[in-house]
Amino acid sequence: MSLLDDLLKSVINGDLNATQNQVRAALAKNIPPEKILADGLIAAMNEVGKLFENNEFFIPEMLVSARAMRGGLAILRPKLAAEDIQPIGKVVIGTAQGDMHDIGKNLVGMMLEGAGFEVIDLGVDVSPEKYVAAVKEHQPDLVGISALLTTTMPRMQDVLLALQAAGLRGTVKVMIGGAPLTAQYASDIGADIYAPDAASAAQRARQMIKA
């Protein structure tokens, strides 16, 4: 279907206007909103993730593609709601307590949104108590914690312990990422998923939902 192919290309090219026009055109042609989302917006952001992993795309490309995707999604969202089409999962994200570096976390949020998740962004310097409160309130499938500093990495384990203490650890998976982190560290503190970058965060979250 060439309209959806064009839509996919517009998102990959980061062209906000074309993306929104093509979403409108697809709706006007009665293409089901779910299909526009899956084969247009989500497929495009999946491709953006691959291009990022292959070092063909960098942060600017990811940002303009995410902006286009969000613009398209804004038009599509009322139609998805009208047909009761739910996101594939819900994620709460934030940076570790004491860590103010948020560009990595923001990219993860955009890529998760582009993968079809509903994203609740708690912002920066998020205490374990705030994560626990957000898990109680939103009942997400996944909690994502990001850290740039070695000094804030231990606060990630505090979140895991706080979720445990609140009896919520079994209800939610925990994903961690950030420059100094390793898969070994994730496993040592008992996190479920380690994501080395924003593209793999979205990919691994999706795999987790499908599993």
Partner: peptide
């Protein structure tokens, strides 16, 4: 830089 690659990429 990022942990892997340049923030803005080599072209920019």
């Amino acid at each position: 830089g990022q942990q892997r690659g340049l923030q803005m990429g080599p072209k920019f």
